Amino acid sequence: MYLTHLDCPRCGLEYAADKLQNLCECGSPLLARYDLPAVAKAVTPERFGLRPADLWRYRELLPVADPRHVTTLGEGWTPLLRTPSYGAEIGIADLMVKDEGLIPTGSFKARGAAVGVSRARELGVERIAMPTNGNAGSAWATYAARAGMGATIVMPLAAPTICRRECVAAGADLRLVDGLISDAGRRVAELIAESDGAIFDAGTLREPYRLEGKKTMGYEIVEQLGWQVPDVIIYPTGGGVGLIGIHKALHEMRELGWVGDKLPRLVAVQ
């Protein structure tokens, strides 16, 4: 594994990567950092095409040391589809769409859950908890079940019924709150405090490894374009972890020398 440490993009503090971490003491999310010069010596872009078509093909840039802890349902490597008719209609000559709906559990949230659960499992977590409005809870409940780990999912009553059913089907402890996602977040904080360390907070941007799974979208887009970057990436976003992950992936690839200095413009649509 080439993971070296976690650091805070706000204040610069560094943390050990072999211990469970949530936020920096300043309140900022933490980012996983790798020995990129060593990665560049260990693997070249051409090697990835010889590996299985899932996100774990980028294992040197992911935070799981022992393959026995990898928790997977075959997520990743979704198609990048050209859409010439719609592109012509809106005046974009070479428009492409990456179809994340084909991933297990039905959304890109499975990427973050796969890597986040795998790393949590490796660090000894037995139960995760998170607030969610929907498909993130479905994904984390499913991957926690795959890993033999418990999951407590807290949703507002107004969350989609299908997502609630998916959590229950995966065996999660589903808690409903009469309120908003912020109320669900407060309930998760209470449950974690009451657990005396037995529950790990896996909420959005509250642990550093969900982002590492989602950044693989950036690696895939560039690989699928023959290790060229697009001009613009338009990203539909809720919490924004996926877009942050793509940004992180692009900067890692630039430091590795796999792409040039010019990076795409990133557009968040909410």
Rank of each mutant, 00 (worst) to 15 (best):
residue 88 A to K: 04
residue 99 D to P: 15
residue 143 Y to G: 09
residue 85 S to G: 14
residue 258 W to H: 00
residue 177 V to S: 15
residue 109 K to D: 06
residue 66 D to Q: 14
residue 31 L to C: 07
residue 138 S to Y: 03
residue 190 E to Y: 02
residue 172 A to P: 05
residue 171 G to P: 12
residue 36 L to N: 15
residue 60 E to N: 01
residue 186 R to Y: 00
residue 259 V to S: 13
residue 132 T to N: 04
residue 34 Y to I: 08
residue 238 G to W: 05
residue 84 P to G: 04
residue 247 H to Q: 08
residue 198 A to K: 03
residue 260 G to E: 00
residue 45 P to V: 08
residue 184 A to D: 04
residue 252 E to Y: 01
residue 148 G to M: 05
residue 225 L to P: 07
residue 229 V to K: 02
residue 188 V to A: 02
residue 12 G to N: 10
residue 244 I to E: 14
residue 105 T to N: 02
residue 79 P to G: 09
residue 151 A to G: 08
residue 189 A to F: 03
residue 113 A to L: 05
residue 62 L to I: 05
residue 105 T to E: 01
residue 259 V to T: 09
residue 192 I to M: 07
residue 214 K to S: 10
residue 87 G to W: 00
residue 161 T to F: 14
residue 5 H to Q: 06
residue 8 C to A: 12
residue 14 E to H: 12
residue 84 P to I: 08
residue 95 L to M: 11
residue 171 G to N: 11
residue 170 A to T: 08
residue 197 G to V: 13
residue 70 V to Q: 05
residue 100 E to I: 12
residue 201 D to K: 12
residue 199 I to V: 14
residue 46 E to Y: 04
residue 185 G to A: 12
residue 180 L to K: 15
residue 7 D to L: 01
residue 176 L to N: 05
residue 125 V to T: 10
residue 118 S to L: 12
residue 117 V to Y: 01
residue 122 E to M: 10
residue 223 E to Q: 13
residue 64 V to E: 07
residue 254 R to I: 05
residue 238 G to R: 10
residue 102 L to T: 07
residue 39 V to L: 04
residue 66 D to G: 15
residue 78 T to A: 08
residue 228 Q to W: 12
residue 231 D to Y: 02
residue 129 A to T: 11
residue 56 W to A: 07
residue 146 R to F: 04
residue 202 A to C: 15
residue 45 P to A: 09
residue 95 L to H: 10
residue 16 A to C: 07
residue 35 D to H: 07
residue 147 A to F: 00
residue 44 T to Y: 01
residue 135 N to C: 08
residue 235 Y to K: 03
residue 70 V to E: 00
residue 24 C to D: 12
residue 177 V to N: 10
residue 209 Y to L: 07
residue 190 E to H: 01
residue 164 R to T: 06
residue 115 V to H: 00
residue 229 V to S: 02
residue 258 W to M: 07
